[in-house]
Design a protein around this nucleic acid. Sequence first.
RNA 1: GCGCCUGUAGCUCAGUUGGAUAGAGCAUUAGCUUCCGAAGCUAAAGGUCAGAAGUUCAAAUCUUCUCAGGCGCUCCA
Length: 552
Amino acid sequence: MLTQLIYTKKMRDYIKREIIRVLIEVYDLSEAEDIVEIQKTSSKHVTSDYYTNIAMKLAKTLGEKPLLIAEKIVSSIITDTNYKVWVAKPGYINFTLHQSQKNNVVLEIIKSEDLLAGVKTSEARNIIVEFVSANPTGPLHVGHGRGAIYGNIISKYLEIQGHKVHKEYYVNDFGNQINKLVISVFSRIDGTIAHGSSDLYEGDYINDISKKIQQFIKNEGWDISIKKILENNEHSKKLEACKKVIVSSILENIRDSLSKLGIIFDNWFSESMLFENNLVDNIIARLRETGKTIKKDGALMFNDDEPRVLIKSNGEFTYFASDLAYHDRKMKKFDKVINIWGADHHGYVKRIYKGLESLGHDVGKLDIHLIQFANLYRGKKKVSMSTRKGEFVELDTLLQEIGIDAINYFYLMRSKDQHLDFDLEVAVSSNKNNPVYYIQYAHARIEKILSQVPEYNKYEFDYDNLTKKQEGDLVDKLINFSDTCKKSIINLKPQIMTNYLYDLSQLFHGYYANERIIKDDMNYSQVYLLVAIQKVIKCGLETINIEAPRKM
RNA sequence: GCGCCUGUAGCUCAGUUGGAUAGAGCAUUAGCUUCCGAAGCUAAAGGUCAGAAGUUCAAAUCUUCUCAGGCGCUCCA
């Protein structure tokens, strides 16, 4: 009756229906359907697979002791050989499945065409995920890494669910910091420009760009000094051209760094474009209509709890103004808008919500994920991340040093709300201290064993032939994979997947050390077990963009 | 002063919708190689879940307050 049903949760449903039936029969509880929950046993001290707390929940309304209720329920349950039911104080009803029943999961995993089928959504939506969006004033450094990797995986998770995902990088190519960048580059060419200013970008990349600009000017055949380009308004076209070269040079570098990390954006949205198409003016006009703007000290402000400047008294727009225009566009075009921001922007969140609300948007569509900072360590020593003076480790350097798999894993292994300490020495190590290595090693180890029994599938899998404690633990863990995927992928929590894979690998390594698989009297069911484990590890690693090597 | 995040073993962190005796790794200590990869495994030890009160049959988890750390509160970007 119950074969092949566990992995697909039907066993749990079966138990639930049985409990409901009993509740109606014994207590005449018509609402039983809504309150019965069958949960997975997580305590290590209890040897059941599922439990329900229904007896404790009903104690008050029924006016009976929970233990008594539980016993009454259990005595009416019709059991079969596939599972046992027992009561534990103060009123838990436990269900223990027969091992050979649970072993079904091994074949189910092996036969499954899509292990992630359980996370598919029934209503696919059009979602935009905006992330990284670092100002194009220099190369990406390690401080940008976490948001980049996290945004990429969130996008992937949404795609796995079946949504249509649009990945976008918002390019702040307008305003003061770009002008500052231009002056920084120009001052490398002509030292008298902005001489002695402490407010310029430094770092080697400025040198590289200044060379490019000099080449560009030469190619264009302009017979004019760099200083003149900057100073004379009549040369503003030339200045704009230089600006474009500078920004696109930096963007090219950023794009290159990201693609090396496997991060490809669908669109690079330019802030300038908002101004060129008068979208910012349009937003200001609409905000004025709502009556929520005020003039104060010559500036135009959005009147929130505190007034927020939209147009400065000198006539310049603030970022708030262009950000509202940008978000207005996104809110119109997509069903769901997700922003991945550094935690230092949290003060800005409320303002954006309030602004968009005033513009008539349903702000429930907007999710802003704030990512806490990551600190990098080299052993005990903290790696500096100061952007001042160009004292930062570039993302490219980090990639070279530890590789793409470690970058993905280490940035994803902790909750986004948690400050993350990232130790480079551990990330490059080739031993069990390094969780990436440890998981990949499990995959490779299994591959090695399987290569020695290529024709294992000529033998049948025997449900009754995995009886050892460690085999039971592994099977339980495999059963959990389905739930793990839901928790991780649907709730957008990559760390749940990294933790699961680590735990599974740990169980496997222990099993491997204790149990010899290749032997004279082969137990082919054990080989099947390894095949299932390997498939799950591979699938799990793929969801977090980490390679599952066959050999290391 | 106001706001957001955090506080769990010596260190770095998990902990699902509130469930049973709190979970890993590192570090420490003691062990394990004729044999599928020791790039590994086993065990011991380690806890006032920051503190207090509340809600509940049940709180690391929810509420309030206090303390501590990080970050943000510019006509900055």
